[in-house]
Design a binder for these strands. Structure first.
Lengths: 337, 337
DNA sequence: TTGTATGCGTTATCAT
DNA sequence: ATGATAACGCATACAA
């Protein structure tokens, strides 16, 4: 006698036990179909006894819609993205959508991953990739399903974006520093192809106005270490800032530690410093970081609404671009003194 | 004329274009089936022209296996779990498995989520839930598919676990503190139902030996804030520790900040302090935290091997329990002086 | 090697 | 309200 593979319970099994037709079972589990309460009761009882669970796979074949959304993430090591993912998963589930998660390092992995996801007939893609290129946009647009991007400049007829107003926040950061008498401002940029970082830097420079001539720009790469290293190098060059805007909180924490350890400079006694994202670690006492809150909750909620719109468009491409204002969260790193 | 829903390209479309049968197309995309190279060539060309992508859904119906693994996460706000998830997603994908992600707050959500995942005929479940109860174990075991848990004590004939040696690490932590002349040790526990935390505490107490009588135990909840609050309260009670072991790094960071801010105590000048998990933030200069590294890479790799075994068992329950030694990472918080 | 035919477990349509 | 039946797109056993 060979191994007996345990065959999952099907609607036919339930039908047999309840003494009804298979279609009756289907109707018993359907919201829309009409069925006599008694029959329904009987069927649910039989289903419970057999531990029957409706199989969604055939429904996918018939409808062509899987109820699954491909979610493509890059750096989960940034708590901002980890938090956003957590929110996203919950919000999508509330709308009856499942998350098929993919992690991507480079464009190569992306193509590969999308290929696989398409095999599962995902209904849409949501990406929180910080970095976007033309090639990525093209690959995503070619899927011919709705794509929602966070804080990205990707464009395409199937691509929608939900972003915080990065440029405006940059202007606000500059105003804060100017108002408090900063003389030597520094901008710590994120990765070169991070569109959000570029916009934040543009706003900052614009907001500085006449003072932009004094601006020192550092190149980071969105990580704590890159912030620490960039600031350390700057200090070695003899630059002594009294105000800084960092493209994200991770780099801001690195900057704070470098300022303190390498030059004994403290935020905010000596340097006014702002970050972006409002990650939990920024609120930790050791950093007490002033930052911009993108409102993850609202960002995700909006993305889900855009997604729902796109899914209801019935196969026609939808492209929306929504901008949300970031909120300044003032903490000790700009308290002055 | 109504909206024309764009029907995805099927193997029949490709067959028509290539002038072959539908089964030939299926074979052209199969690793195992035999097909003439020329025919294969012709079919792949037609497929490329039509932008055909094999649909995996029907194969799921036939085989009963979806190639999808349900991954259940709790606190992604803990960077340790975020990092583990990132590793897990990559490792599973290398084995051709997709990740269906679910976030769970409580047992209620869990039941609900598992219900939904089962509808997609997931092949297995991987959980990184810090907190497990009998009810959770029962719900998972009832799925009748392989379940892999990290750092958990859940048991069941379908449940396997991969854990670091929490108890042994606790003993090591105690030895470190004893060797360096600590007189007033403190244990900061994680959430009550966190099995890993309980084991770490047991090991610590045992490792303290005769000194266990002096031990002060604090109750935390796995978060930075809970660590900060617990230590603050302790300081108010007049306890002045010179050595601490915290059940995880998040709480350790909170503890360090509270020690400094509320009592001017510094790690390691005044207090020797150890955490657990080796999250990136522990290495940040402001904390410089001595901790235990669970080896996320190896933990995840092992979990995937266990998973692969279980999947190959062909419907028979598999239950393995694997323990991996954690590695002490010494940094400034135990440097002394 | 290749084509034909069958079945996977549902939902939707139709007739009763 | 209910039952019979046809799809959905692919993989496979079988026939050629």
């Amino acid at each position: 006698m060979g191994v007996r593979e345990r065959r999952p319970v099907t609607s036919v099994d339930v039908a047999k036990r309840a003494g009804v037709s298979q279609s009756a079972v289907s109707r018993a589990f359907s919201r829309t179909a009409s069925i006599a309460p008694g029959t329904r009761e009987k069927i649910l009882k039989a289903a419970a006894e057999l531990d029957y669970r409706p199989n969604r796979i055939p429904a996918i074949m018939l409808s062509g819609r899987s109820g699954m959304v491909g979610v493509v993430v890059g750096g989960l090591s940034n708590p901002f993205y980890a938090g956003a993912l957590e929110h996203l998963v919950c919000s999508l589930r509330e709308r009856g959508l499942q998350v098929l998660l993919v992690h991507v390092d480079d464009a190569l992995t992306l193509d590969d991953a999308l290929e696989q996801l398409l095999g599962y007939r995902i209904d849409a893609v949501v990406t929180a990739l910080a970095i976007g290129s033309k090639a990525v946009a093209k690959a995503l647009d070619a899927l011919r399903i709705p794509v929602i991007c966070f804080n990205s400049r990707l464009t395409g007829q199937w691509i929608s974006t939900v972003s915080s107003n990065n440029r405006a926040a940059g202007v606000v950061a500059a105003r804060v520093l100017r108002e408090r008498g900063v003389m030597q401002p520094v901008w710590l940029a994120g990765a070169l192809r991070n569109a959000a970082s570029v916009a934040r830097g543009e706003g900052f420079r614009r907001g500085l106005g006449a003072m932009a001539g004094e601006l020192v720009s550092l190149q980071g790469a969105d990580t704590y270490e890159s912030g620490y290293d960039a600031v350390s190098a700057m200090l070695l060059r003899g630059v002594r800032p009294d105000g800084m805007f960092c493209s994200n909180d991770m780099m801001a924490c690195g900057a704070i530690d470098a300022l303190c350890e390498r030059a004994g400079l403290s935020c905010s006694r000596d340097v006014m410093l702002l970050g972006y994202d409002n990650i939990p670690q920024g609120a930790w006492r050791a950093y007490d970081l002033t930052t911009f809150d993108q409102g993850v909750g609202q960002l995700v909620k909006t993305a889900c609404e855009v997604l729902a719109n796109a899914l209801e468009a019935g196969g026609e491409p939808v492209s929306q671009n929504i901008v949300i204002e970031a909120r300044l969260v003032e903490r000790g790193s700009t308290a002055g003194g």
